[in-house]
Amino acid sequence: MLKLLRLALTAAIVTAIAVRLRRRARMPGKPPAPPAPKAAGRTRMGPVWGAIAGVVVLTLAAALIPTGPQALSELRAALYQAEQSAMTVAMDARGKSPAPVTPTPGPAMPTSAMPTSASVTPAPTPLGPTSAPVMPTPTPLATTPATTASASPPGIPAACMLSGPATVRPISPRVRAAVNRQWRRIERWLRENAPRTYASLGAPGRAGTIALAEAQTGLELPDDLRASLLRHNGMSGPPAARFSFGGEQVRGVREIRDQWRESCALRVGRGDPIGRLVRVGTMIEVDADSGHVVASMVGPEPIWPSYHAMLRDLADALEKGRPVFGARATVKGGLLRWSDAR
């Protein structure tokens, strides 16, 4: 634009100089007396300035009105800039090189020469927004022995593999508080005197696991035994480091169920009725009907009236040094040991 203005001003100056030189060439040698001012003088200069203005207008018009090649060049430049802008926007949106832009059909390009949509539009990927939703593969549910009869251990008859509805039964708050009180006494003594044995105490059991074991055995465990299993579901770690009393290991829910199945298989093999005793240790058992703790291999008489009474005597044996099952508690290397009380 600045060049156009300079060109117009130059043309105007050149025209003015040419007019002035022409006027001087017509003047005589001596300047005549200045004529009286007439209005015609002004009239004579009007066409001059009109000519100058016309030259300026023509120059500007010639500069501003593009020719055919110039218009085509400017159009191509504008199209190129638009295409580059579109490509830049596509790169910012996709984070990669954009697909080639489809040209608009014009006189020089027939519609038949246009690329098809298949060559321009990328095919959707399986995870793309235009693909059909992929249904997740269902995860098979884990089967339990209660629902799978073929999962029975070898040698266990079907009569000892019961499968019924598992129902979580409530526990008397009074019984649960009493059992937890005895376990706190045992835990405190082990933590202070036998820390390695204290570390073997199992994690709390689950009410659903206990209910499932009851459904698989057809027995209802006493409240104090269930409350104890909810406090510590058996023991963990090496057998030599596990908590025991008088050589009796404290078993978990699944160990109790498996032991009952083995005992049930022996009874069925002998033709005896299925027992109601639940083995909770090496020898001691809990009667599911009365709740008594017995040792049927030694005698039919109850050893303790309940599982809670057994835990109370065990806590007394640890705190007061009393014997249990003819053995007294000792500690060696942070482990609880039972020695002969005699």
Results as ranks from 00 to 15, higher is better:
residue 86 A to L: 10
residue 72 L to A: 08
residue 54 G to L: 13
residue 64 L to Q: 07
residue 61 A to P: 02
residue 79 L to D: 10
residue 56 V to Y: 02
residue 66 P to G: 10
residue 65 I to V: 10
residue 80 Y to V: 15
residue 57 V to K: 10
residue 55 V to M: 09
residue 70 Q to G: 01
residue 80 Y to Q: 15
residue 64 L to G: 13
residue 63 A to R: 04
residue 65 I to A: 05
residue 78 A to E: 12
residue 58 L to P: 05
residue 78 A to F: 04
residue 67 T to R: 06
residue 61 A to N: 05
residue 79 L to N: 09
residue 87 M to D: 14
residue 77 A to M: 12
residue 62 A to S: 14
residue 76 R to A: 12
residue 85 S to H: 15
residue 84 Q to N: 13
residue 80 Y to A: 14
residue 84 Q to D: 14
residue 78 A to G: 12
residue 52 I to H: 13
residue 70 Q to D: 09
residue 71 A to V: 07
residue 58 L to N: 06
residue 53 A to T: 05
residue 79 L to W: 07
residue 62 A to E: 11
residue 61 A to G: 12
residue 60 L to Y: 07
residue 70 Q to H: 09
residue 53 A to N: 07
residue 67 T to I: 03
residue 58 L to W: 08
residue 79 L to K: 08
residue 70 Q to L: 06
residue 54 G to Q: 00
residue 60 L to D: 02
residue 59 T to H: 01
residue 72 L to D: 00
residue 81 Q to S: 14
residue 58 L to R: 02
residue 57 V to T: 07
residue 74 E to N: 00
residue 52 I to Y: 03
residue 52 I to V: 06
residue 77 A to F: 10
residue 82 A to Q: 09
residue 55 V to N: 03
residue 68 G to K: 12
residue 85 S to N: 15
residue 65 I to K: 02
residue 81 Q to A: 15
residue 83 E to C: 08
residue 68 G to P: 03
residue 85 S to K: 15
residue 81 Q to P: 13
residue 53 A to G: 01
residue 78 A to C: 03
residue 75 L to M: 04
residue 58 L to I: 13
residue 78 A to T: 05
residue 77 A to W: 11
residue 87 M to S: 12
residue 71 A to H: 08
residue 56 V to M: 03
residue 74 E to H: 04
residue 59 T to K: 00
residue 87 M to C: 02
residue 83 E to F: 06
residue 54 G to I: 01
residue 63 A to K: 00
residue 86 A to N: 01
residue 63 A to W: 01
residue 54 G to R: 02
residue 68 G to E: 10
residue 76 R to W: 11
residue 69 P to F: 05
residue 74 E to K: 05
residue 58 L to Y: 03
residue 83 E to M: 13
residue 72 L to I: 03
residue 84 Q to W: 08
residue 67 T to S: 12
residue 52 I to T: 04
residue 65 I to S: 04
residue 86 A to F: 11
residue 87 M to R: 13
residue 53 A to K: 12
residue 86 A to M: 06
residue 59 T to Q: 09
residue 70 Q to S: 08
residue 71 A to Y: 07
residue 75 L to F: 01
residue 64 L to H: 10
residue 66 P to C: 07
residue 55 V to A: 10
residue 87 M to W: 00
residue 77 A to P: 05
residue 76 R to S: 08
residue 74 E to P: 00
residue 66 P to W: 00
residue 64 L to V: 10
residue 69 P to R: 00
residue 84 Q to Y: 11
residue 59 T to N: 01
residue 69 P to M: 03
residue 86 A to S: 04
residue 52 I to E: 02
residue 61 A to S: 14
residue 83 E to Y: 11
residue 55 V to H: 03
residue 66 P to M: 00
residue 76 R to P: 02
residue 72 L to C: 04
residue 80 Y to S: 15
residue 78 A to K: 08
residue 77 A to Q: 05
residue 62 A to T: 07
residue 75 L to R: 03
residue 76 R to V: 08
residue 64 L to C: 02
residue 72 L to P: 01
residue 74 E to D: 11
residue 68 G to M: 10
residue 78 A to V: 10
residue 64 L to N: 00
residue 86 A to Q: 02
residue 64 L to D: 01
residue 76 R to C: 09
residue 77 A to E: 13
residue 80 Y to P: 01
residue 77 A to Y: 15
residue 67 T to D: 09
residue 71 A to K: 09
residue 53 A to Q: 12
residue 63 A to L: 07
residue 85 S to A: 15
residue 72 L to W: 08
